[in-house]
Computed example of a mutant assay.
Amino acid sequence: MLADLYQDARLTGAQRRLLDYVPWTARLRNTPARRGDGQVNPAEWAEQNRKNTVIKPNNSFGNRGVLIGRATDEAEWRRVIEHAAANGGYIVQPDSWAATY
């Protein structure tokens, strides 16, 4: 899964640079993920960037189970992040549509 590559410390510098050509994706958990030149905690990043973020089940397709941060109230968003970080099975991505609304 693409999300795993952003959290794989074994990648070489050249392999990490290839990720610059695809949208950032990370498993929603409390482990570091590469983002740009640095690292972030995906769960913390999702909480701090709710209005520009989506959370998706990693074993689904289409729009099944997708949560859009700007359309989800803050308390529910936090609950979902806590559940996903504790139980796994979700990814987090920037919301590519957020800039158009």
Rank of each mutant, 00 (worst) to 15 (best):
N49T: 12
E47H: 03
A85S: 07
G65V: 04
T31S: 06
E74F: 07
N58D: 10
P32Q: 06
A9R: 06
I68D: 08
R70M: 10
P57K: 07
E44D: 08
E74I: 00
I81Q: 04
L19P: 15
R34P: 04
F61I: 07
V66A: 02
A26H: 00
E47K: 03
R29P: 00
V92E: 01
R35W: 12
L67P: 00
Q39I: 11
P94L: 14
W97S: 13
R10S: 14
W97P: 03
S96M: 00
V66M: 01
L11Q: 10
A75I: 14
N58Q: 08
A71G: 12
Y21H: 11
G13S: 15
V54R: 00
R17G: 14
A71F: 13
V22R: 07
E82F: 09
E44H: 11
S60C: 03
S60L: 09
V22D: 04
P23E: 02
L28H: 05
G69C: 08
G89W: 03
R17C: 05
R29N: 09
A26S: 05
P94F: 13
R78I: 08
Q7W: 08
D73M: 05
T25F: 13
T31L: 04
A14Y: 06
A98Y: 01
S60A: 06
P23V: 15
A71Q: 12
Q48D: 13
T72W: 05
R27I: 15
G62A: 04
G62Q: 08
F61D: 15
P32T: 10
A71P: 03
I55K: 10
L11S: 02
H83C: 03
A26E: 00
N87Q: 08
P57S: 08
V40W: 11
D95R: 05
N63S: 15
I68P: 00
N63W: 14
L5S: 09
R64F: 12
R64T: 07
H83N: 09
Y90C: 14
D8T: 13
I91W: 05
P23K: 09
I81R: 06
P94Q: 10
W97H: 06
T53F: 06
A86T: 03
R64D: 12
D37N: 15
W97D: 12
A84W: 00
N63A: 11
M1E: 11
W97N: 14
P32E: 04
Q15D: 04
T25W: 10
F61G: 15
G36A: 10
V92K: 06
A3G: 07
R29Q: 06
P42Q: 00
Q15A: 01
A43L: 13
Q15I: 04
G65A: 11
E74T: 08
N41A: 05
I81N: 00
H83Y: 10
N52E: 15
